[in-house]
Amino acid sequence: MSPRKQSADAGDSTSQEATGQVIATVERAMDVLMHFADTPTTTLGVTEIADALGMSKGVVHRVLASLRGKQLIQLDPVSRRYSLGVGAMRLGLSYLDRLEIRRIVAPELALLSQRTDETATLSLRTGWTRVYSDQVTPEREVIMSVSLGVPYPLHSGGSSKAFLAFLSKQEIEEYLVQARRDPPTGHTIDDVGRLRKELEEIRLRGWTQSFAERMSGAASVATPVLDHLGRPAAVISVCGPLERFREEVDDCVSALLDSARRLSAQMGWVEREGREH
Rank of each mutant, 00 (worst) to 15 (best):
Q209M: 14
S210K: 04
S210V: 11
F211D: 15
A212G: 11
M215W: 04
S216H: 12
S216V: 15
S216T: 15
S216M: 13
G217P: 00
G217S: 10
G217Y: 07
A218H: 09
S220W: 02
S220F: 05
A222D: 05
A222I: 07
A222H: 03
P224G: 14
V225T: 01
V225H: 00
V225F: 00
L226I: 07
L226N: 05
L226V: 07
D227W: 00
H228D: 14
L229A: 12
G230M: 06
G230D: 09
G230W: 02
P232Q: 01
P232T: 03
P232D: 01
P232N: 08
A233T: 04
A233P: 01
A233V: 08
A234V: 09
A234R: 03
V235K: 05
I236T: 09
V238Q: 00
C239Y: 00
G240Q: 01
P241N: 11
P241F: 09
P241T: 13
P241K: 08
L242K: 02
E243D: 12
E243W: 08
R244F: 02
R246E: 15
E247V: 10
E247R: 10
E247Y: 07
E247L: 14
E248I: 06
V249T: 14
V249L: 08
V249Y: 06
D250L: 09
D250A: 13
D251C: 01
D251T: 04
D251W: 02
C252E: 06
V253P: 06
V253R: 09
V253F: 10
S254G: 03
S254Q: 03
L256M: 11
L256T: 12
L257I: 15
A260I: 11
R261E: 15
R261W: 11
L263R: 00
